[in-house]
Design a protein around this nucleic acid. Sequence first.
DNA 1: AGGCGTTTCCGCCAAC
DNA 2: CAGTTGGCGGAAACGC
Length: 288
Amino acid sequence: MASARATEVEHLLPDDLPIRVMRWHAQDSLELHRHPFFELVTVNAGRGIHVTNAGEFPIVAGDVFVISGPVSHGYKMTDRLVITNILFLPKRLRMPMQDIRELPGYHVLFTLEPHYRAKGHFESRLHLEPRERSLVASWVEALDQELVAQKPAYRFLATAHFMQIVGFLSRCYSSRRVPAAAPLLRIGQALSYLEQHFAEPIRLEELERIAHMSRTALLRAFRQALDVSPIDYLIRLRISRASELLRNSELSVSEIGYRVGFSDSNYFARQFRSVMGTSPRAYRGAKA
DNA sequence: AGGCGTTTCCGCCAAC
DNA sequence: CAGTTGGCGGAAACGC
């Protein structure tokens, strides 16, 4: 039954614009279900228990959280619960990310928390004030109408509405000082610092200062949240940017290595191979 | 929370 | 000549 529902929902996500808005009311019993896409959940009214295969936690009106990929979840003990879900596939959406990744809250909401929840942690989540809630609700409504009406250029406008929602929520989270969210927010601050300064020499000492954590605490929290060490993350970030430049520019390999933070082109080529499996030039030549 | 042994990074030269 | 790989050693990052 659960898999049938997931399949049914998947068919509702078109290839050319994989976003959909769905609303659930308490009277609809929603069993555990799973699906391959992301789900941005906003609790509009009431309360209930959110259940996943890793545990359960209470939710109330104003809560916002993201479920990612293959996590089974559902709701129980609902009391006048009204929920709005935005289902989306971030990769196929191809929305311009610009500088959103410079916001700590973006990392916390869309990467760190979903990953953390899959391990059974729920203490951290975004809670919106009434004013913020109504703003988000209006944008969600606009998004839904674009998706339903499908007037000319609806893809463009729907993406814009979705970006408005993502950006606003990320900003909200960035400015929060919720104790339960503090550890993840600190990692989020480290991530946004890396996003902005990845091309410069970065030492662990700086990240400790940015995140306000000791070296030990930083390393442990970082690995717990991302399954990777800070310097490993930085290297992968640099290589990721380098491969973009290899695909989309005519710059020389050495110049690209230099621009993404490798002062030594020999070292750049070696790290590129260790991450991507091939050399930079072979990677550029293989793009088809 | 800090110490310590081990691993990895990183900049350099050399050689295809 | 640009790019890639290998080796080396001090520095740092890492995990216990």
